Simulated assay, not measured.
Amino acid sequence: MTASPRQTDVAIIGAGPTALFAAFECGMLRLSSLLIDALDCVGGQCAALYAEKPIYDIPAHPAIEGGALIEALEAQITPFNVPRLLGQRVEGLQGQRGDFTLTTSAGETIRAKAVIIAAGAGAFGPNRPPLDGLDAYEKTGAVQYYVRRRQDFTDRRIVVAGGGDSALDWALSLSDIARHVYLLHRRDRFRGAPETLARIEAQVAAGKIEKVVPYQLSGLRGENGRLQAVEVATLDGAARLLEADTLLPFYGLSTDLGPIAVWPLDTHRSQIPVTPSTLETSLPGVFAIGDVASYPGKLKLILQGFSEAAMAVHAIHGVVHPDTPLHFEHSTSLGLPGVA
């Protein structure tokens, strides 16, 4: 027996900060919504990649960690009881403005009057190093691609691999609590801000970070997923063995719009062009906000995504209630409305 489709006014694809704020705006306009995300938790890249890294350009917060921002956004939508379909991605979209049917990889069917795509850069995952036996070490956590809880790495011997901001930032952050941090890169040149590079050199001089250059990963040694050492080598074949408990490879993310890329809407280089005033895509009734949305003058900032969420939801009100004018009110006078 097939389960009945879920009914909602607005289906929001994604569950990052922009998507969460869109759900709040829906609640404020008495529109029902639900969130769908391929990750098994809300927060998108903020939760997966930056949970304990500070963000400095959120209004009214001189600094706020990514995880704390997500917690606050979740608290903001709590009164509206927004359903979350996590660990599944939207596979299919059919219908038209005012009557869409979405299907997910977990077999869910959703009927919605409008759709918001807030998928960031799309489904994302780490670029994995091509090492034999890697899966076994990933399953035990000996190889990880994200740092969700900094304290989990206390007193560990860590190899941080990569030459960009993520590798440099986490090498610095973990050097104060780890037993030893190796910073591995294929050349003695890193891509970072001058201040960050100066801090790296200071930690190297203090013996808290050991630079291993110019080397690259060549193998893993251990038993039953328990890492004992990381093999590295130069392009000339010179090899070293680094005693380590944990490998953190930061080689960037592979991103993919997935099925969205073949939906009947315009895309360009993994982004979705929208009308700036409404954030509506070329497919009427489908809107895009956040990093995935593209228009002249676009800034890829969370705060701009928040603004786009509000604009899109106000435009969607006319889709859901075409015969009911929307009289805009400030939250100070509107208060917190109940769920529609």
Rank of each mutant, 00 (worst) to 15 (best):
A112D: 00
M28K: 06
S307K: 12
I260F: 04
I272V: 15
G252H: 06
D323L: 13
F21R: 08
A198T: 13
L93A: 01
N81V: 15
Y145Q: 04
A38C: 13
R6T: 15
L86H: 08
I12R: 03
H268A: 14
S105E: 06
S166C: 07
P322H: 04
A229N: 05
Q271N: 09
R240Q: 12
Q76A: 12
D152L: 11
T234K: 01
A3L: 11
T154Q: 06
G164W: 07
E223F: 10
A244D: 01
P284K: 07
Q7K: 11
R150M: 14
G67N: 01
G92L: 09
L279C: 15
R97Q: 15
R149W: 05
I58W: 02
L197F: 03
Q96F: 07
W263P: 03
I64G: 01
D165H: 08
K298C: 05
L73E: 09
S294P: 00
T2F: 07
F190R: 02
I209L: 11
Y215V: 05
A119D: 06
P264I: 13
L31M: 10
K139E: 11
P126L: 10
V82D: 02
P325I: 12
S4F: 06
E210I: 10
Y251Q: 07
V143H: 00
T196R: 01
L257M: 14
G318H: 15
S218K: 14
P284T: 01
Q94S: 12
Y56V: 14
P59S: 13
G27C: 08
V160R: 10
P259D: 02
D9T: 07
E329Q: 15
C26H: 05
D40G: 14
A38M: 12
D9L: 00
E201L: 09
A60P: 01
S105D: 06
D57S: 10
T18I: 09
D256C: 15
S277D: 14
P59A: 13
Q304V: 12
E74P: 01
W170Q: 04
F328P: 00
L174R: 03
R149V: 14
R191K: 14
H185A: 09
A3C: 04
R186H: 11
L49D: 08
G207K: 01
E25D: 12
R269F: 13
E25V: 15
D256G: 12
S282D: 00
C26P: 03
I302F: 03
G258P: 03
